[in-house]
Each structure stands twice: as structure tokens, then as C-alpha cells.
Design a protein around this nucleic acid. Structure first.
Lengths: 146, 146
DNA sequence: TTATCTGCAAACATTTTGCAGCGAG
DNA sequence: CTCGCTGCAAAATGTTTGCAGATAA
């Protein structure tokens, strides 16, 4: 376990308050605005630390940024992330896991690992958004929109 | 359509020869080694061009690099990528697509899009690899290995 | 001919690292 | 008191861009 410093606590509090996916830079800015004296590197270090301890989830937005959020569900799961506001639902489906393993095995692959994230517009943002607008959290990689 | 320059042709040929996921930098190096005079920026530009025309698949390795491969299957599909050698199988499962839509809808999300890639060791690399070694293409995000 | 493409290097954005000093335990 | 943590700024990565000159059509 790492030391509980003022900065680490601030990062945790911020994550706790937000409960949506945020980039390290965003967290950093938020903390600064809130009057906290923290360095960007420290935010990165703490976020990573928390992530490797399994306290926060990390996911990579399509533009390459890493996004962090407090973990609510300790097990393996995926996310349904709103690309507008960053809000996310944790979703876990054993069907997927099983299917992944199966397919991989069929192809002779071992040590299989998968990543899967769903991006969309949450109910709130859907209502507020007419049609074309994407930003903040995730933009399409594979144009599915099915 | 873009102009078919010597460089663009070289990139295409390289992709054709490799038929595995490669980073722009790798393609660049390969071309240079093969005696081609190309600039890194040009490789990036061509790879992107080809990608946006749907001629190549792009996927993001876990370390953040973008990997490219000639597209064989024009429709929506996912990949089972060997993290050792970059070899990949294209896999498409409508079950997943349907499930994704369904779950998203249940949560009130619209304009849903998903990304999913499977990383593992292909049969060949599995045989050649004892246990712990990961590099080149993908490293785990979510430790599943189930 | 001429609009597009290329090569180079400089610019970018995000993340990491080196190091002297601070501070939790 | 000690060793880990912090802040800063500099370095590293992977990718993009500006621009003068080359070149496909």
C-alpha cells in the first residue's frame, strides 16, 4: 500500500466526487481549480498507482487518452461509456467471456485477453443532442452504430 | 482516390507482404531496410489515407500505438491478434453485435459503437513461448486470460 | 502544367522521469 | 529520522503539420 498523502487523498476525493471517466489532465485541472496544490506528474503517478492496485478502472479513449474512474466492481467487466459526458455503466457478461475464450481456442490462441468498450450517448445526453456531435470521451474506431 | 505514388505503392506492397498488424514506425523501418526512400510522415499519411478509404484496418495496441493491416474483410469485424508476431484473424460474430445493441438500449444509450479486440498468442507463438513474455503488438489491459 | 504528394524538421499532446526537498509513518 | 512522495521541468513517445521542392496525371 502506498502512503496516503494529501495529494493522493485529493485525487481519490475527486474521483469519488466525479464518478465518471476522466483523463489525468482533467483531474489535474479540477484539483487545481478546487485550490489543491498538486503537480500533474503526481496526478499521473497516483492514478496509475490506484489503477495497479485495482482501485480505479482505466480505459483508453479513442483519441488515445487514458481515462480513469473509481472502481465499483472489482471483477472483470466492461463499460458502456457516454462519449458526451463521460458517465459510464459497468457491465459484465459472462457470455462474452466464455465466447472469447472459445473462439480463441478454436483458433489455437492461448493466453487470451480481450478489451471491449461500448461508447454511446447516455439517455440524458441523447435527449439533449440532436444528431452529429462527438467529443470528450470516445469517438468511433469501428463504425458500428448498430 | 489518391495518387498512386512510388511511396504509396511501397506501403501497400509492404502491407501486402506482411499481412499482420504493424505499426507505422515498423512499416517505415521495413521499407527503409528494403531500400525504399520514404519519410516517416509519408508512411503515416499513407497508412491513414488507406485506412480512411477502408483499405486497411487500424487497431490500437494497448501501449497506444496504432497498428495497421491490409483489410481482407470489408464489413464490421473484430480481431484476434497475436501479441507476439502480430498475426491476426478477423472474426465477426453477430451475436456480439446484437448483444451490444441490446445492452446499450437497456441502459438508454443511443448511437452506440463498440470496440473489441482479442489479444493472445497464436498457435505458433504459443508453442515457441514458455510462459512470461509479451511485446510487440498488444499487452493486457484487463487481465482476463481466461 | 499544376494540384497533390513527399521529406524533413519542428510542433504537438500525453505521459514519464530525474532530482532536490518535503513530509507521512 | 527515513524513505517514499512531490513538484517542476526536461525527456520520451507516437503522431501531426508547415513548407519548399518533387511528381503523378
Amino acid at each position: 500500500m502506498q502512503r496516503m498523502t494529501r495529494q493522493r487523498q485529493a485525487v481519490l476525493d475527486e474521483l469519488r466526487r466525479i464518478d465518471d471517466f476522466r483523463s489525468a489532465q482533467q483531474v489535474f485541472e479540477d484539483l487545481r481549480e478546487d485550490g489543491h496544490r498538486v503537480g500533474l506528474a503526481t496526478v499521473y503517478r497516483n492514478l496509475q498507482g490506484l489503477a495497479s492496485e485495482g482501485d480505479v478502472d482505466v480505459l483508453r479513449a479513442v483519441d488515445g487518452e487514458n481515462l480513469y474512474r473509481l472502481c465499483t466492481n472489482r471483477g472483470h467487466h466492461h463499460h458502456l461509456v457516454c462519449r458526451q459526458c463521460g458517465h459510464a455503466e459497468e457491465i459484465a457478461l459472462s457470455e462474452i467471456e466464455a465466447w472469447v475464450t472459445e473462439v480463441a481456442r478454436q483458433h489455437g490462441y492461448t493466453q487470451v485477453d480481450h478489451s471491449m468498450e461500448l461508447f454511446g450517448l447516455c439517455a440524458t445526453c441523447s435527449a439533449a443532442t440532436p444528431a452529429g456531435s462527438s467529443d470528450q470521451v470516445g469517438t468511433s474506431t469501428s463504425p458500428t452504430t448498430d
